[in-house]
Amino acid sequence: MKKFIKLISTTVPLPIENIDTDQIIPARFLKATTREGFGENLFCDWRYDANHETKSGFVLNDPMYSGKIMVAGKNFGCGSSREHAAWALQDYGFDVVISSFFADIFKGNALNNGLLPVQVSDKFLNRIFTNINQNPDTEIEINLENQTVTLLENGEVEDFEINAYKKACLINGIDDIDFILRNKNLIEEYEESRKA
Protein backbone atom coordinates (compact mmCIF):
# COMPACT_ATOMS: atom_id res chain seq x y z
CA MET A 1 0.00 0.00 0.00
CA LYS A 2 1.10 3.55 -0.83
CA LYS A 3 2.36 5.65 2.08
CA PHE A 4 0.37 8.75 3.00
CA ILE A 5 1.85 11.48 5.18
CA LYS A 6 0.88 14.90 3.91
CA LEU A 7 -0.96 16.33 0.89
CA ILE A 8 -1.52 19.82 -0.49
CA SER A 9 -3.98 20.04 -3.35
CA THR A 10 -6.80 21.93 -5.01
CA THR A 11 -10.22 20.33 -4.75
CA VAL A 12 -13.25 19.06 -6.59
CA PRO A 13 -16.44 20.15 -4.77
CA LEU A 14 -19.60 18.05 -4.80
CA PRO A 15 -21.99 19.69 -2.31
CA ILE A 16 -24.64 16.98 -2.41
CA GLU A 17 -25.71 14.95 0.60
CA ASN A 18 -26.15 11.17 0.77
CA ILE A 19 -24.03 10.39 -2.28
CA ASP A 20 -24.35 6.62 -2.47
CA THR A 21 -21.99 4.09 -3.94
CA ASP A 22 -24.38 3.44 -6.84
CA GLN A 23 -23.74 7.03 -7.96
CA ILE A 24 -20.01 6.83 -7.36
CA ILE A 25 -19.80 3.73 -9.53
CA PRO A 26 -23.03 2.31 -10.98
CA ALA A 27 -23.52 -1.44 -10.55
CA ARG A 28 -23.25 -2.16 -14.24
CA PHE A 29 -19.53 -1.39 -14.05
CA LEU A 30 -18.86 -3.99 -11.42
CA LYS A 31 -18.19 -6.72 -13.90
CA ALA A 32 -14.46 -6.18 -14.04
CA THR A 33 -12.14 -8.72 -12.45
CA THR A 34 -9.21 -6.40 -11.70
CA ARG A 35 -8.93 -3.26 -9.58
CA GLU A 36 -7.84 -0.86 -12.29
CA GLY A 37 -9.80 1.28 -14.72
CA PHE A 38 -12.84 2.22 -12.61
CA GLY A 39 -11.92 5.92 -12.65
CA GLU A 40 -13.25 6.23 -16.18
CA ASN A 41 -16.73 5.48 -14.93
CA LEU A 42 -16.61 7.38 -11.65
CA PHE A 43 -19.98 9.18 -11.27
CA CYS A 44 -20.80 7.93 -14.74
CA ASP A 45 -24.51 8.79 -14.73
CA TRP A 46 -23.83 12.30 -13.51
CA ARG A 47 -20.93 12.84 -15.90
CA TYR A 48 -22.43 11.48 -19.10
CA ASP A 49 -25.84 11.44 -20.75
CA ALA A 50 -27.41 8.39 -22.37
CA ASN A 51 -25.26 8.86 -25.50
CA HIS A 52 -22.14 9.08 -23.39
CA GLU A 53 -21.79 12.80 -24.11
CA THR A 54 -20.36 14.75 -21.19
CA LYS A 55 -22.93 16.74 -19.21
CA SER A 56 -21.67 20.28 -18.84
CA GLY A 57 -23.24 20.98 -15.46
CA PHE A 58 -21.29 18.32 -13.58
CA VAL A 59 -18.20 19.27 -11.65
CA LEU A 60 -15.90 16.54 -13.01
CA ASN A 61 -16.57 17.98 -16.46
CA ASP A 62 -15.74 21.50 -15.34
CA PRO A 63 -12.12 22.45 -16.12
CA MET A 64 -12.24 25.03 -13.30
CA TYR A 65 -11.99 22.25 -10.74
CA SER A 66 -9.32 19.62 -10.35
CA GLY A 67 -7.12 18.13 -7.67
CA LYS A 68 -6.53 15.13 -5.47
CA ILE A 69 -9.15 16.08 -2.89
CA MET A 70 -12.88 15.59 -3.31
CA VAL A 71 -15.08 17.64 -1.00
CA ALA A 72 -18.56 16.14 -0.68
CA GLY A 73 -21.80 16.66 1.24
CA LYS A 74 -22.81 14.80 4.36
CA ASN A 75 -23.16 10.98 4.51
CA PHE A 76 -20.82 10.26 1.63
CA GLY A 77 -20.56 6.66 0.40
CA CYS A 78 -23.82 5.27 1.78
CA GLY A 79 -25.42 2.23 0.18
CA SER A 80 -23.70 -0.87 -1.08
CA SER A 81 -20.47 -2.22 0.40
CA ARG A 82 -18.79 -2.28 -2.99
CA GLU A 83 -15.13 -1.43 -2.61
CA HIS A 84 -15.20 -0.40 -6.26
CA ALA A 85 -16.37 3.01 -5.05
CA ALA A 86 -13.06 3.56 -3.27
CA TRP A 87 -11.11 2.14 -6.23
CA ALA A 88 -12.96 4.40 -8.67
CA LEU A 89 -12.23 7.53 -6.66
CA GLN A 90 -8.60 6.52 -6.33
CA ASP A 91 -8.24 5.44 -9.92
CA TYR A 92 -9.62 8.81 -11.01
CA GLY A 93 -6.88 10.45 -9.00
CA PHE A 94 -8.33 11.27 -5.59
CA ASP A 95 -6.24 10.60 -2.48
CA VAL A 96 -8.62 12.24 -0.01
CA VAL A 97 -12.36 12.73 0.38
CA ILE A 98 -13.55 15.40 2.80
CA SER A 99 -17.11 15.28 4.11
CA SER A 100 -18.95 15.98 7.33
CA PHE A 101 -20.03 12.34 7.57
CA PHE A 102 -19.04 9.05 5.94
CA ALA A 103 -20.95 5.81 5.68
CA ASP A 104 -19.26 3.16 7.73
CA ILE A 105 -18.36 0.55 5.15
CA PHE A 106 -17.18 3.12 2.66
CA LYS A 107 -14.89 4.59 5.27
CA GLY A 108 -13.38 1.18 6.06
CA ASN A 109 -12.95 0.33 2.39
CA ALA A 110 -11.34 3.68 1.68
CA LEU A 111 -8.84 3.26 4.52
CA ASN A 112 -8.03 -0.30 3.48
CA ASN A 113 -7.00 1.05 0.09
CA GLY A 114 -5.09 4.08 1.23
CA LEU A 115 -7.82 6.58 0.27
CA LEU A 116 -8.13 8.91 3.24
CA PRO A 117 -11.64 9.89 4.41
CA VAL A 118 -11.39 13.15 6.34
CA GLN A 119 -14.43 13.94 8.45
CA VAL A 120 -14.87 17.60 9.39
CA SER A 121 -17.66 19.48 11.16
CA ASP A 122 -20.68 20.68 9.15
CA LYS A 123 -19.53 24.19 9.80
CA PHE A 124 -16.01 23.65 8.51
CA LEU A 125 -17.36 21.79 5.49
CA ASN A 126 -19.49 24.82 4.68
CA ARG A 127 -16.46 27.06 5.05
CA ILE A 128 -14.59 24.89 2.59
CA PHE A 129 -17.46 24.96 0.10
CA THR A 130 -17.76 28.74 0.42
CA ASN A 131 -14.04 29.17 -0.16
CA ILE A 132 -14.04 26.93 -3.20
CA ASN A 133 -17.07 28.76 -4.51
CA GLN A 134 -15.27 32.07 -4.30
CA ASN A 135 -11.99 30.69 -5.53
CA PRO A 136 -11.89 27.39 -7.44
CA ASP A 137 -8.11 27.30 -6.95
CA THR A 138 -8.48 27.03 -3.18
CA GLU A 139 -5.78 24.78 -1.80
CA ILE A 140 -6.20 22.48 1.17
CA GLU A 141 -3.52 20.81 3.21
CA ILE A 142 -4.15 17.42 4.77
CA ASN A 143 -1.59 16.57 7.40
CA LEU A 144 -2.07 12.99 8.56
CA GLU A 145 0.72 13.11 11.13
CA ASN A 146 -0.96 16.01 12.98
CA GLN A 147 -4.50 15.05 11.86
CA THR A 148 -5.31 18.52 10.56
CA VAL A 149 -7.14 19.96 7.55
CA THR A 150 -6.09 23.50 6.63
CA LEU A 151 -7.54 26.01 4.20
CA LEU A 152 -4.22 27.41 3.04
CA GLU A 153 -5.66 30.70 1.80
CA ASN A 154 -6.62 31.94 5.24
CA GLY A 155 -5.05 29.38 7.55
CA GLU A 156 -8.37 28.14 8.94
CA VAL A 157 -7.74 24.71 10.38
CA GLU A 158 -9.67 21.83 11.90
CA ASP A 159 -8.56 18.56 13.47
CA PHE A 160 -9.87 15.26 12.21
CA GLU A 161 -10.14 11.85 13.86
CA ILE A 162 -8.54 8.70 12.60
CA ASN A 163 -8.09 5.37 14.25
CA ALA A 164 -4.50 5.12 15.55
CA TYR A 165 -3.96 1.73 13.97
CA LYS A 166 -5.18 2.88 10.55
CA LYS A 167 -3.05 5.97 10.80
CA ALA A 168 0.04 3.87 11.49
CA CYS A 169 -0.81 1.62 8.52
CA LEU A 170 -1.15 4.60 6.15
CA ILE A 171 2.00 6.28 7.36
CA ASN A 172 4.01 3.05 7.08
CA GLY A 173 2.26 1.71 3.99
CA ILE A 174 1.35 -1.69 5.52
CA ASP A 175 -2.06 -3.37 5.39
CA ASP A 176 -4.25 -5.58 7.57
CA ILE A 177 -3.18 -8.87 6.03
CA ASP A 178 0.47 -8.16 6.87
CA PHE A 179 -0.63 -7.42 10.41
CA ILE A 180 -2.86 -10.47 10.95
CA LEU A 181 -0.39 -12.90 9.42
CA ARG A 182 2.11 -11.91 12.09
CA ASN A 183 -0.35 -13.55 14.51
CA LYS A 184 -0.91 -16.78 12.62
CA ASN A 185 0.07 -18.98 15.58
CA LEU A 186 -2.71 -17.37 17.64
CA ILE A 187 -5.26 -18.17 14.95
CA GLU A 188 -4.23 -21.81 15.00
CA GLU A 189 -4.35 -21.89 18.81
CA TYR A 190 -7.83 -20.41 18.69
CA GLU A 191 -8.99 -23.10 16.27
CA GLU A 192 -7.55 -25.83 18.49
CA SER A 193 -9.21 -24.39 21.58
CA ARG A 194 -12.61 -24.56 19.90
CA LYS A 195 -12.23 -28.19 18.93
CA ALA A 196 -11.64 -29.12 22.55
Binding site: I105, G108, N109, N113, D176, F179, I180, I187
Partner: peptide, 20 residues
Protein backbone atom coordinates in the same frame (compact mmCIF):
# COMPACT_ATOMS: atom_id res chain seq x y z
CA UNK B 1 -22.10 -8.39 7.99
CA UNK B 2 -20.92 -7.24 4.60
CA UNK B 3 -17.26 -6.61 3.87
CA UNK B 4 -15.26 -4.98 1.12
CA UNK B 5 -13.06 -6.86 -1.29
CA UNK B 6 -9.86 -6.08 0.69
CA UNK B 7 -11.51 -7.82 3.61
CA UNK B 8 -12.57 -10.73 1.41
CA UNK B 9 -8.89 -11.12 0.68
CA UNK B 10 -8.15 -10.83 4.40
CA UNK B 11 -10.55 -13.67 5.23
CA UNK B 12 -9.16 -15.79 2.40
CA UNK B 13 -5.63 -15.29 3.71
CA UNK B 14 -6.28 -15.58 7.44
CA UNK B 15 -9.90 -16.68 8.19
CA UNK B 16 -9.92 -13.56 10.38
CA UNK B 17 -10.81 -9.89 10.20
CA UNK B 18 -9.34 -6.94 11.96
CA UNK B 19 -12.25 -5.08 13.50
CA UNK B 20 -13.37 -2.63 16.14
Amino acid sequence: FGIGTSQVEQVFATQCLLLQ
